[in-house]
Structure formats: C-alpha cells, structure tokens
C-alpha cells in the first residue's frame, strides 16, 4: 500500500543519486584555481556557523569583555570577510564563464538568491554587535526601511528581532539555499570553460 515515506523515498531518488551527490572523480577542466572559489565560500560559511554558534552560546557580554570572546568575535568577523571575498570572486568567475549554460539557469538563480540572503544576514549581523557602530547603523538605516515601507515589519531598532533574524532565520535560509545550489551543481555537473565544448559534451555525471 503506498504511503508518504515510500513516496518521499522514490521522489528523493529522482532528485539526486548518491553517485551524483558524492562523485569520486571530476572533469579534467576543473583542475584550475578558478573552480575553487565556490568551495572556499562554503568553507568560509562553515567557519561562520561554527564561530557564530560559539558567540550565540556565550552572549554579547562575553564577546565584548573577555579575551577569548574577542578572539572568537574576530574569527566570525574575518570569516564573513572571506565569505564575501570568495563569493564575489565565485560570482565573477561564473558570470564570465556564462555558467547558466546547459540547463544551469536555476543554479544561477539560486546563487543570486544566496547573494541577496547573505547581504541580509551580514546587515543584521552588523546590527547585532551591541556596540556604538551597530546603534549608529540602526538609527541611520531605520529611515531607509521606513522609506521603502517595511519599517514596521523589519525594525532595525529592535535588537531582539535583528538578532533572531541573524542567528536563526538567515542561517537556516542560507543553509537551505546552499543545499539546493549544491544539489543542482551535482546534477548538472560543473560548467566547462567556454572554449571547451568537447569537454562539455563529455562531462561526467551531467544530466
């Protein structure tokens, strides 16, 4: 008798197979530093989550007043610098490679959504610092939010709302989008260089 568990398992096997998700071999054309920016962005995100988890565990007083708190706070800060640094380089590389070729349009769109979501996460992060800088940004930015009509729903002066969005909602949204992005990359295969049409035809695990 059909049930939801079986239906879900069958649907999941149509989304991606284990061989597609975790390939042991990659095409020769990926032996380039240009193809590393996406993985470096993902690595920065893992550092962000780990340091952010520690900051959330101990709270603002700890990250402002203790030497270990300063250190973890700095790791979080530099992780986000690396995250955006490598994400923009990844964006440049994919743009100049026209990476939406070969049925990869949705991968590109999800990447663009990731970029926008990351900006919201970074902005709410700046508002969650609990220092003069975050107060200044909140007071200056609230007028912009009111001007576009979302000030009542997205109140920069409400620390609880900004902090919750930063540590709960945006990480979940970004993690979900990264999962979709990676599944799409694995399903379609890594985009070949523009001049490498022959390699594109022979790209493994592409469908």
């Amino acid at each position: 008798m059909p049930n939801m568990t079986g239906s879900f398992r069958r649907w999941l096997s149509t989304v991606i197979t284990a061989e597609e998700l975790l390939p042991e071999e990659l095409p020769e054309y990926t032996r380039s530093f240009v193809y590393m920016f996406g993985a470096l962005t993902l690595g920065s995100f893992i550092c962000l989550v780990a340091s952010g988890f520690t900051l959330a565990l101990f709270g603002p007083e700890w990250w402002h007043l203790s030497s270990v708190g300063h250190f973890v706070n700095s790791i979080h800060f530099w992780s986000v610098q690396c995250f955006f640094f490598f994400m923009v380089l990844h964006l440049w590389a994919q743009f100049f490679m026209a990476a939406w070729r070969g049925g990869r349009r949705l991968t590109w769109v999800v990447g663009a959504l990731l970029f926008v979501s990351s900006i919201i996460a970074a902005f709410t992060g700046y508002l969650s610092q609990q220092n003069l800088d975050s107060q200044w940004i909140a007071v200056q930015g609230k007028d912009a939010m009111n001007a576009i009509g979302i000030g009542a729903f997205f109140n920069l002066l409400n620390f609880g709302q900004m902090y919750s969005i930063h540590i709960a909602i945006m990480p979940a949204v970004i993690a979900a989008l990264i999962t979709v992005h990676l599944i799409l990359v694995r399903r379609k295969g890594l985009v070949p260089p523009l001049a490498d049409d022959a390699a594109r035809e022979g790209a493994p695990h592409a469908r």
Partner: peptide, 17 residues
C-alpha cells in the same frame, strides 16, 4: 580589498595548479 580581489581573480586565471 577591491584591488586584492582583482589580483586574486587574475592570478587564479593565470596560475596553474
């Protein structure tokens, strides 16, 4: 930072693994 990004991007295109 902007200059560094351009340098790293150009280096990634030119340098071989």
């Amino acid at each position: 930072v902007l200059g560094l990004m351009i340098v790293v991007f150009a280096a990634a295109l030119v340098l071989r693994l």
